[in-house]
Structures are given as C-alpha cells and as structure tokens.
C-alpha cells in the first residue's frame, strides 16, 4: 500500500480532510447510472444492439448487386415484416425509436464519461509518447464523426432530402445516385472506415465491460472484434465501390 504522505504544518488541497462522501442516488438504477462501470455497461449494451443492426444492414445492402428489383423488393419486404399482425411499416416504426434510444444512450454515456476522463488528468505529461492503437485513441472523435454521418445518411437515403434523386420506394436508384457524386462517396467511405475502427476497439471493450473477457478468451475476443470490424467495413464499402466501378448502375 502506498504510504500516506505526511507534510504537517501546511495548507493546500493535498492535506484537506477527505470530503464527506457525496449523497448519491438511493435507487439501484440511480447508483448504477452514476458509476463509471454502470455507464460503460449502458455503452456496451447499446453498442452491441447497434452492431447487430449494422450487421443486418450490411447484409441487406449486398442485395444491390442483384439488381433493382431484388433491392427494391427487399426494401418493400422490410415494410411488411410482421404482416398481418403488424400494419404496413409498423415494424420499422418499432425499430426506429429503439435504435434512437441506443444512439442517445450511447452518446450521452460517452459524453459524460469523456468529461470525467479528461478532468481526471488536468495536467498533461511534458514527455508524451504515442500509446494505444489508432483504433483505441480515435474512439471519441470517431464516435462524433459517426453521429454526424448518421444525420447525413438519414437525410440522404431515408428521407432523400439531400439525395440527387431522392425518390421514395426506389432505394436502388437513390443509392446509385448518391454514390455517383464525389461527396457522397467521400463521406460514406470515411464513415465506414470510422465504423470499422470504432467496432474494432468497441466490440472488444464491450466484452471486457460486460465481464465476458478472461485471460484464455482474450485472444479469441480480439480476433473476433477484428474480423467483425473488417467484414462490416468491407461489406459496406463494396456498395460505393460497386457503383464507382460500374458493377452497379
């Protein structure tokens, strides 16, 4: 145990009596959210939910390689999931608030944790070394980039507001239109590389946070995170590359 440093007869922050423990929230949920591990658990669960969605999204995107009918038919089918129990598009409208909740919870927890983390090292080291991997130290800015991309992506291919074509019910044509512009491609490619980097560290980190990691499983978890990140990024990138090379037109 570290020695308690005693320097009597002086005043200063180092020697003031320990502050009375702050009166924390009394409910279990409040205590959980207040703690760093609780917030990280929220980030892990919401992150995994978004990752599951992304995998399904990526697989669905590959339909674009089988022509407009296949792609547009798939898009139409998405609106009929749950039929006849669920009305047209109800499934999508159930998923949308859930995904929004995951994004908001992930972002709010990340912002609050980041503020804590930055405040915990008020004076930086004079001698700085490059440290953790690129994926690890781009988590915060990468997350911000992804949040901004999400807005762009919805305006581009869901509402069609910024899409050069933006015709409802014709996702295939809208995708081709978006990826026929230089800015559409650039924004998308940057964001998909950011997704890959984010998932690479995030998936492994989520496993650690949820207590799934162990010494024997560590390597397997890291390889899984790398493979999922790579497959996800390549799968998403194949669509703009397909349009650019004329494979999809």
């Amino acid at each position: 145990m570290a020695l308690a440093t005693r320097t009597p007869g002086r005043s200063g922050p180092a020697r003031t009596a320990p502050p009375a423990p702050p009166r924390g929230p009394r409910t279990a949920v409040g205590r959980f959210w207040r703690s760093t591990i609780g917030k990280k658990t929220v980030m892990a669960v919401s992150g995994l939910a978004m990752l599951l969605y992304l995998v399904a999204h990526m697989v669905g995107n590959l339909k674009v390689f089988f022509g407009p009918e296949e792609m547009n038919g798939y898009a139409h089918w998405l609106r009929t999931i749950g039929d006849p129990v669920l009305h047209h598009e109800w499934f999508l409208w159930i998923m949308r608030p859930l995904l929004l909740l995951a994004v908001v919870a992930h972002g709010v927890a990340a912002a609050q944790l980041s503020r804590r983390d930055l405040a915990a090292r008020p004076v930086k080291y004079a001698h700085r070394k490059p440290r953790a991997s690129y994926a690890t130290h781009t988590m915060r800015w990468g997350g911000v980039i992804l949040a901004l991309f999400l807005v762009w992506h919805i305006l581009d291919l869901t509402t069609g507001t910024v899409n050069p074509r933006g015709e409802a019910g014709h996702p295939y044509e809208n995708i081709v239109a978006s990826f026929s512009t230089w800015y559409g491609n650039t924004i998308y490619i940057v964001a998909m590389v950011a997704v890959g980097l984010h998932v690479r560290h995030g998936l492994w980190g989520a496993a650690q946070t949820l207590g799934a990691g162990s010494r024997t499983r560590d390597r397997a978890l890291k390889v899984t995170a790398d493979v999922v990140a790579l497959v996800l990024t390549l799968g998403f990138l194949s669509v703009p590359v397909g349009v650019m090379t004329g494979l999809v037109e």
């Binding site: 502050p19 703690s35 760093t36 591990i37 990280k40 804590r116 983390d117 930055l118 915990a120 690890t136």
Partner: peptide
C-alpha cells in the same frame, strides 16, 4: 467502485 468514482479517477476505456 463508488469511492473510486467519487475520488475523481477517470473511467476505463480498455486501453490496457
């Protein structure tokens, strides 16, 4: 963990 958080330490980002 509660005391650790109250003391102003940051959270873990699994940098190792």
């Amino acid at each position: 963990v509660g005391t650790m958080d109250d003391e102003g330490f940051g959270g873990c980002t699994n940098t190792g």
